[in-house]
């Protein structure tokens, strides 16, 4: 199959999976326990890596930008710089990439293994719809947990930035905090919270689709897992660009 056809076919399959997941939410039986379990696995389970990523990203942002800001004698704006970058871009994108690596791979590997060991067939044979039981809870959990993880990453990023500004560049903490407060607007916060919803949908749909379309035994599971992480990560980055542009237009965001 030509790459363009394959791309369009995959896009169609992923769109159908998302559509079926949401349609199935209205039908019984529902699986609230499975949604909660996935939320715990995705949200609580990913918290440590997301907090570490956020903390050190905030820290390195200040570490790299502070000397430049100092050169122009605007080092008091370090907080604004790190807050805007983190909340608008780095927080949502880095959190999504970390979750894509950790959860996207896990979902794809789990569903792929279930496919090759006929567990998905068994589920269907015993009257359970795998989209309702497996796919919908994972997508829902990702859509709800990714924004929360992003908030946690943003907060720890700001703390990381503050710690670096204070300990390495001896900036007064209240200067940093004041700069952060002046730097972020409501539209930044809203924009930064809208993105993770879409990223959660992308990661969930791509990894579930890749897992369920696994063929070729255990080698196929490995291939699906790699593809799920790579494709979800690329889509997060591509979609982030267009989403940022759309949010700039819709929320009328100002310059950094």
């Amino acid at each position: 199959m030509y790459p363009v056809y394959r791309f369009l076919f995959e896009l169609q399959e992923i769109s159908l999976l998302i559509w079926r997941s949401f349609v199935n939410l209205r039908r019984r039986p529902r699986y609230p326990g499975e949604v909660l379990r996935q939320m715990d696995l995705i949200g609580v389970g990913s918290l440590p890596i997301v907090l570490l990523t956020g903390f050190f990203t905030g820290g390195v942002l200040v570490l790299q930008t502070f000397p430049t800001l100092e050169y122009y004698s605007i080092q008091s704006e370090a907080g604004r710089s790190v807050a805007t970058s983190l909340i608008r871009e780095l927080g949502p994108v880095l959190t999504a990439l970390m979750v894509s690596g950790r959860i996207g791979s896990a979902i794809s590997a789990e569903l792929g293994s279930m496919v090759v060991s006929q567990q998905i067939d068994a589920m269907r044979a015993f009257g359970t719809n795998p989209i309702r039981k497996l796919v919908a809870p994972r997508i829902i959990a990702l859509i709800f947990m990714l924004p929360l993880l992003t908030i946690a990453a943003d907060i720890f990023g700001l703390i990381g930035g503050g710690v670096v500004a204070s300990l390495i560049y001896n900036q007064e903490t209240h200067v940093f905090i004041a700069s952060v407060r002046n730097g972020i607007s409501t539209s930044d916060l809203v924009g930064g919270m809208i993105k993770p919803f879409f990223f959660g949908l992308i990661i969930g749909a791509v990894s579930c689709h890749k897992g369920l379309s696994t063929t070729g035994g255990t080698v196929g599971v490995g291939r699906s897992t790699t593809n799920a992480v790579v494709i979800a990560s690329i889509w997060v980055i591509i979609f982030d660009f267009f989403l940022s542009k759309a949010l700039h237009f819709v929320l009328d965001m100002g310059p950094i």
Binding site: S113, S117, M123, A125, F126, G127, N129
Partner: peptide, 22 residues
């Protein structure tokens, strides 16, 4: 698929490798 769910209630299936849910 929805209509088949009703039919599948009448059928039991023993898979090649057991296909137990791990």
């Amino acid at each position: 698929e929805e209509q088949m769910m009703g039919v599948r209630q009448k059928i039991g299936m023993v898979f090649q490798e057991g296909a137990l849910f791990d």
